[in-house]
Amino acid sequence: MSVTDIDSASTDSDVRPVPFRGGGFKTIDRKFVGLGVFIVLFAFWEWGSRSGFISSLVLPAPSEALEAFMDLARSGDLQLHLAASLQRLVLGFTCGTLLGLTVGTLIGLNSLARAGISPLVSAIFPIPKIALLPLFIIWFGIGEGSKVATILFGSFFPTVIATYSGIDGVDRTLIRMGQSFGLSRWHIIRKIVLPATLPSILSGMRISASISIILLVAAEMIGAEYGIGAYVLLAGNLMATDQLIAGVVMLSILGLIVNFLISRAEKYLLSWRS
């Protein structure tokens, strides 16, 4: 076909552009939409409560919950509750994560440990740790021990699984490279295997952090004087739904903060990912 042929073809009446069939299936980052949904929901809720559409007995207005929160802050109990909860959470989560990393690395690298421990992990992981709480109280006492232990166990297992499955996924060519340059086993583990496992460890931490918050509240509902869980339980017993909502919102915000921190850590530590 010569150039003139193409020209004459394009003047033909039987010419149409190729229909576009691509696109879609790709999410775009839309900021403020999530925030907008929250605002609309709360506005509707507030409006519903004020207009009597939502009975205050069933659900207190957001403004009432906020008032309950301010009362709590003014009384000085807020600090006590938060301090107690955060201390348990940080202690249990940190110890659980560190232990989980150690055991997960062991399972990932040692076939004897894998054969011996991983069935045990699979057997204990699905047990709701709350069910074990009475046992923990007998073992570690009704005080801090049992609460920290519950959180520790809850964050331990997801970390173990994330760590060893991450190690399984490490690019073998990188390990072979390390061996071919005569690096010691310890060097290969520390400088190649563990950094390559970091993405998996961090996504495991996301799960174990959420589980920890759930277990924190559950543990604090039994025999705790202070803590957000204790506060929520007390509010529930007194039918003080405004306090209950305030407590629940605090938990939600706590979860959001933890998630945000992990996202920041991912952004900072995993910037090398393409």
Partner: peptide, 18 residues
């Protein structure tokens, strides 16, 4: 010589975080 027999791999085998 630190490593007399040294490989160059097809897929480079560079550590992406370094």
């Amino acid at each position: 010589s630190l490593n007399p027999l040294t490989y160059v791999f097809q897929d480079f085998a560079l550590l992406p975080w370094r």
